Simulated scan of single mutants.
Amino acid sequence: MLYNRLFVFGPMLMLAVFIGGCASTASLPEPIAQDDPMPTGTLAEVDLLPDYLQQLDADLAGIDDHQLDSILVARHGRLVYERYFNGYAADTPHDLRSATKSITSLLVGMAIDDGAILNVDQPMMSHLRDAYPEVDDKGDIQLRHLLTMASGLDCSDRDPDSRGQEDRMYRQRDWVGYFLSLETVAPPGLQPDYCTGGVVALGRVISEATGQQVDAYAQQKLFAPLGIRNLRWARFDDDSQIDTGGHLLLTPRALVKIGQLVLQQGQWQGESLLSPAWINEATTPQVTLDNTPYGYLWWLHEVDYGVQPVRIIAARGNGGQTLFIAPQFDLVAVTTASYYNDPQAAVVDRIFFNAILPSVPELQAAAQRTAPTGIE
């Protein structure tokens, strides 16, 4: 089938890329509460072709030891494909890792909409000065620099020798204070470098600006309107602060809702939760990070299937936690997986770009002719 020949590894793709043991069901998070359901439907009702997804089902059914935990697809606001593996179920929250960062971007936009934050050009320290009066010489770092990973501080999660590398930060009590203590190595905005510490600092900015803990603000402004209650934030600083850089527990269905909110330009069931202006700005390329266009904590891709360029907005977390949004086709897909620190996590991209997206009829003819370009 066409699905097979689109993959680099050929018809035996799944056997080539899926190795390793299953996740232990004993370690899975227990459901915390019950989320509101979202509309469901069939592939035919939303005009998605079944061939690729049926082949994906067949391939996965023959493998006992892959580390995919869920695959979900929604189109036109309806959930039409939903699979769980390795003991996970619809109500099992999953650690989103750094996909949490994209949710933090939405919260910054909401705080701007509320007037608690003026704009992204505000200096970071204008909100953090009272909490950290001892910090010097950081006044030129703006909120936009934190949103684009371009603070200029010695903070690179990709470099184990960087003082701000996330594992070093996690060993501290107050991660925000530790981030603010880092030395400046480049002018802000000049040199983007993947840095979780800056996104954690954004969480403290939201808290100081709104006068609420981030979890309470997020529940009020984002999660409650979406009917999301089955969640848990990670904490640090003796549980007094919220980790907005990663480790939010959320169900894959809830992450589909987040994608749908972005797709709908901040609208949900007739209510405006977030301004379209913020959605557009946050999902417009601002910098290049890891050789990929990057907005305000959102990854941005463009792939060419031979018919038209397809724009993709993505939230990504270590291990295969991914939210894909294809605005042109009114489509959202979510994967969760346990390929932590494993290059095999890239299989979620192949599943999306070579199985889910070509299920859109507009791309079927092009998929028969050639594999898409622009995918690494």
Rank of each mutant, 00 (worst) to 15 (best):
P285Q: 14
Y296Q: 04
I313C: 02
W299F: 13
L263K: 05
R316W: 12
P358G: 06
A345D: 14
N291P: 02
V262I: 15
P276W: 10
G295K: 07
N318F: 07
G320P: 06
V347M: 13
P343F: 09
N341G: 13
A346L: 07
L289W: 11
A337N: 06
D290L: 15
E302F: 02
G319I: 11
H247F: 13
P293G: 05
L249A: 07
I325Q: 03
N280E: 15
Q267I: 02
L357R: 01
A315L: 07
L261I: 12
E281Y: 04
V310H: 02
A333W: 04
Q267H: 12
P327C: 12
I356W: 03
F352Y: 15
G320R: 03
Q308Y: 08
G245Q: 09
E302W: 02
L261Y: 13
L248H: 09
G317L: 12
V334N: 06
S272R: 15
A346F: 14
T335F: 05
R350P: 00
T251M: 12
I356S: 01
I279V: 15
F353P: 02
P327N: 12
R316Q: 12
T292E: 04
Q328M: 03
P285N: 07
V332K: 04
Q328E: 14
D349P: 01
K257F: 03
A355M: 14
L248C: 08
G246R: 04
Q328F: 07
G306Q: 07
